[in-house]
């Protein structure tokens, strides 16, 4: 009960239908060039990270493809329900790093730098399974990246507070129920990427607040 999720669902669900409004620097041409001045560069990274986070939060993107291939991010959860892509078509994430209006694009190396900056902050993580090529480089070569606009810990506490609020402590829920069930509709984690939810649940398991059992596609969770 320490976090402040109650106001989030309404804001995110209401704004997801409208297109994302980019910050002013998005249309500032030098924003797409790596700055050499260290302080300016840091400010640039900071602004890019917050832009990426805000963008992903807006469109509820959990996995971001750095090359801008939209299918990889959506095939996991889009067909299952309308949670993520309420507006129908999945947003073209290439626009995040490519401002077509001013014809400027952030290079892949620079994108990786932004992602690294996010990773240092615990706000991003390379999807390990999706990028076998980058195994040598400490997961740095992958195309798919978890963008934690909420970290697994935060998701975990969200789930926990929902369980508390609905009085389901001690009961057993399937993961599918948590993500797609009628009961969670309206809550923040409705439509959450299943893998990400598992990460969050594992956090709870570690804390001793939950227990996961079952097989591959019929996972169950028991909350204590």
């Amino acid at each position: 009960m320490t976090t402040s999720p109650p106001n989030d669902p309404s804001s995110s669900s209401s704004s997801s239908s409208s297109p994302f409004s980019f910050p002013p620097e998005y249309s500032f041409p030098p924003f797409f060039t790596r700055q050499t001045n260290l302080t300016t560069h840091h400010a640039q990274l900071t602004k890019w990270s917050s832009l990426v986070l805000a963008y992903c939060r807006h469109y509820r993107i959990f996995k971001l493809s750095l090359s801008g291939n939209p299918t990889t991010t959506t095939n996991a959860d889009a067909p299952v329900g309308g949670g993520g892509g309420e507006g129908g078509a999945e947003p073209d994430t290439t626009e995040l790093f490519h401002n077509r209006r001013i014809n400027r694009r952030l290079s892949l190396a620079d994108i990786r730098e932004v992602i690294d900056f996010l990773r240092r902050d615990g706000r991003a993580e390379y999807v390990s399974g999706a990028a076998p090529s980058g195994g040598g480089a400490e997961g740095g070569g992958g195309d798919l990246v978890w963008i934690y606009w909420r970290t697994p810990e935060e998701w975990a506490s969200l789930v926990e507070s929902w369980v508390d609020a609905t009085g389901q402590r001690g009961s057993v829920l399937t993961v599918y129920e948590l993500v797609e069930g009628e009961g969670t509709r309206g809550s923040e984690f409705h439509g959450l990427n299943q893998e990400l939810l598992l990460k969050a649940l594992n956090v709870l398991v570690k804390r001793g607040k939950a227990q996961i059992f079952g097989q591959e596609d019929s996972l169950g969770v028991k909350f204590f």
Binding site: E25, P30, T33, T39
Partner: peptide, 21 residues
Amino acid sequence: GVLCREEGIEGLKFWENFIDT
């Protein structure tokens, strides 16, 4: 930190720094 750069097809250009505001 007063200016910032932009490398493009038109060459290196310098702008007022709106990145680090």
